[in-house]
């Protein structure tokens, strides 16, 4: 398997090829997509992209953790975490992709 890592650059290159805007503008639009999604999530909103997946923000309560090296107890303060739930379409395509 190829195991490549794609970055923003690859996404803007795809937009550039698909839509024919300048490379610069394509990059700005990719950034705008990520920015709007981040803003919504930071404000606690769920972001639901049909046939892609759902990003939701969950509240975690405070708990006592442990430093695995020293065994010391350390308090973990309440925090918000992001979870991503892939759509069925994404799961199916990823599962099918690995079989080839």
């Amino acid at each position: 398997m190829s195991e490549r890592t794609l970055t923003r650059m690859d996404l803007s290159e795809a937009v550039f090829r698909e839509v024919g805007l300048s490379r610069n503008e394509s990059a700005q639009l990719v950034e705008a997509v990520l920015q709007h999604m981040s803003d919504a999530l930071a404000s606690g909103e769920t972001v639901k992209i049909s046939s892609f997946g759902t990003f939701s923000v969950r509240d975690k309560s405070a708990r006592i953790g442990r430093n695995p090296k020293t065994g010391d107890e350390v308090p973990i303060s309440p925090r918000r975490v992001l979870t991503f739930r892939p759509s069925h379409l994404m799961k199916d395509r990823v599962a099918a992709g690995s079989k080839r």
Binding site: R8, A14, V19, G97
Partner: peptide, 18 residues
Amino acid sequence: TVFEEIIEALAKGDRVEL
């Protein structure tokens, strides 16, 4: 295109790091 590109990469076994 942005979302499709991410799915395609994952289907190939690639990573997408943003």
